[in-house]
């Protein structure tokens, strides 16, 4: 286990001069050109920007799914870049939740089993697992759909299963990559209401990538990315 300092001296999440380069030489593509960012506990951050501005790359790095080319990423004061592979895995397992743009649920696997999966890796007992998974399913409003596989669920329902899977571990921070990207307006609002509620009621920090201003408006803070740099970073006036 990694010893995280519990003092408030360290920011929750801190990026310093983070860059990400894909490929090498002439073909090199600079996705991030030096990001400085700080996110505190309990925030609800929307990350916006045009395609290719580096917002998803940044989110993947924050979620420990990807590693920066240069720069420092500190999580609760711990330098993530210096952690071993399995320490990063532990970080994901115990602190981070992730909602993918393409849902990334296991095929031919029931909603409940999908939601239970992270709990299996946390060595939670079968009974406790089931209880928590059903709770999470309840939270996203999908009671009665336990045994349906992703193929039998609509896009919005799959997105909600993906959210349930991310929150079932009660992560310290939830990353969501365009959680409403594939949904109609009504479904999008349902999802956003759900995320807001998680942020307000359970105190889960949320970092969400979106390109819809309507959805970004649900967040308390909006960061704009452009060409691999932070263009603007402002608190939203509107409180939900």
């Amino acid at each position: 286990m990694i010893a995280f300092s519990q003092t408030e001296n360290h920011p929750f999440i801190e990026l310093k001069g983070v860059t990400k380069v894909y490929g090498t030489g002439q073909a090199a593509m600079h996705a991030l050109r030096g990001i400085d960012l700080r996110i505190d506990e309990g925030e609800f951050v929307a990350v916006m920007g045009p395609s290719g501005s580096g917002k998803s790359t940044c989110l993947n790095i924050l979620a420990c799914l990807d590693t920066p080319t240069t720069g420092i990423y500190k999580f609760k004061g711990i330098e993530v870049g210096k952690l071993t592979r399995s320490q990063r895995t532990r970080l994901r397992r115990f602190y981070l939740g992730f909602v993918f743009q393409g849902y990334n649920l296991l095929n031919r696997t029931s909603a409940l089993d999908n939601i239970e999966l992270p709990l299996i890796y946390r060595r939670i007992s079968a009974i406790e697992r089931r209880k928590r998974a059903i709770n999470a399913l309840e939270t996203v409003g999908l009671r009665g759909w336990e045994s349906h596989t992703p193929g039998e669920l609509s896009g919005g329902q799959q997105q909600r299963v993906a959210i349930a899977r991310a929150i079932v571990t009660e992560p310290a921070i939830l990353f969501a990559d365009e959680p409403t990207g594939n949904l109609d307006t009504a479904r999008s609002r349902e999802i956003m209401d759900l995320l807001s509620a998680l942020n307000q009621n359970q105190g889960i920090t949320i970092v969400m990538v979106t390109h819809e201003p309507d959805m970004a408006a649900y967040a308390k803070r909006t960061i704009h990315f452009l060409d691999g740099l932070v263009e603007s970073d402002e608190q939203n006036g509107r409180a939900i």
Binding site: A63, T89, P118
Partner: peptide, 19 residues
Amino acid sequence: TERTREIGIRLAIGAFERE
């Protein structure tokens, strides 16, 4: 392909490589 994605999902939600 499917299995590689499955592995990606499992790793992303906190499975160790060895698991």
